[in-house]
């Protein structure tokens, strides 16, 4: 199991989830992706969209101005 990281704090919808999907497509099933993102729209939509595609949201934590969500790839 590998842990991968992705920072999408500079991206806007829908490129936030596009970038997340690109990494999720590249990593192995069971790997964890830690995404750093801003509050508001990305925080609302990225975990929801990832869950809709069958991935597991492990945690969502606030980290200063941004948030870190951990997703386990389906």
């Amino acid at each position: 199991m590998d842990i991968h990281t992705l920072d999408i704090t500079k991206e806007h919808c829908p490129m936030t989830f596009v970038k997340a999907k690109l990494v999720l497509a590249k990593i192995n099933s069971g790997d964890v992706l830690e995404i750093t993102l801003k509050g508001g729209e990305p925080l609302e939509n990225v975990p929801k969209s990832a869950a809709e595609e069958g991935h597991r949201i492990l945690s969502i934590e606030k980290n200063g101005e941004s948030h870190v969500i951990k997703i386990e790839k389906n």
């Binding site: 829908p14 490129m15 989830f17 596009v18 970038k19 999907k21 690109l22 497509a25 590249k26 809709e52 595609e53």
Partner: peptide, 21 residues
Amino acid sequence: YTEDQLERYSRHILLKDVGVE
């Protein structure tokens, strides 16, 4: 993918039935 390619094909990539694959 280049940034331009990701943006060009973003509406396909977002589709669950298409995606990056």
